[in-house]
């Protein structure tokens, strides 16, 4: 059994070094209340979410007094402040997240809003990129149509090589690790 505490710490250090914020919660109830806090702190007015088991549970327990949209996301993600989606794997060494985002909604909410909140299982952590690639390689005969590795918010250094966070994709990336998502958890 992998040492997820250690992998999480590694992830956190690496992801924070590329300007992501990293959180860890016990279950989806806690994830919900953390989401409420993050929304409140930010002053966000609208959240667009790509429905998935973890996202749905999280939204159910969150106490959000803002506009929450899960449909017609091409329109609704564009002017949302927050986008919420579930990610499939986390790569500890380099602070990257991996997602099967063949589902268009997952792409829209992780690309268009100002802030992307990513929920991911703690036990999905793998040590490094090659390990993640090897896992995907196992399903290559049925490889997802659209996959992404996401490492921090979007960035550029195209003007005078000055690092600037937030170009075409999200300006902020907040990652919530969930230890025990319930139901099918291994723990």
């Amino acid at each position: 059994m992998a040492d997820f505490d250690k992998l999480f710490e590694q992830f956190k250090t690496a992801a924070e070094a590329v300007s992501a914020q990293v959180y860890r919660v016990k279950d989806l109830n806690e994830a919900g209340s953390l989401l409420s806090t993050l929304v409140e702190e930010d002053g966000a007015k609208k959240l667009a979410a790509a429905s998935s088991p973890m996202v749905d549970k999280c939204l159910n327990t969150a106490n959000l007094n803002i506009e929450v949209k899960t449909d017609d996301l091409r329109k609704n993600a564009e002017d949302a402040d927050f986008g919420l989606s579930e990610l499939d794997m986390a790569v500890a060494e380099i602070g990257s997240l991996q997602q099967d985002c063949t589902d268009l909604n997952k792409r829209l909410v992780s690309m268009l809003p100002h802030t992307h909140v990513a929920i991911v299982r703690t036990d999905s952590l793998v040590a490094n990129l090659l390990e993640a690639m090897a896992k995907i390689d196992e399903i290559k005969d049925n490889i997802p149509g659209y996959m992404a590795f996401i490492t921090g918010p979007s960035r550029t250094a195209d003007i005078e090589r000055v690092l600037t966070i937030g170009v075409h994709g999200p300006v902020k990336l907040k990652v919530i690790f969930v230890d025990n998502p319930g139901g099918d958890s291994n723990e």
């Binding site: 990257s96 589902d103 149509g145």
Partner: peptide, 14 residues
Amino acid sequence: QLTSYVTMITGANP
């Protein structure tokens, strides 16, 4: 160590 995004596309998607 890795760019912000690595996109992998197989075939036509939604």
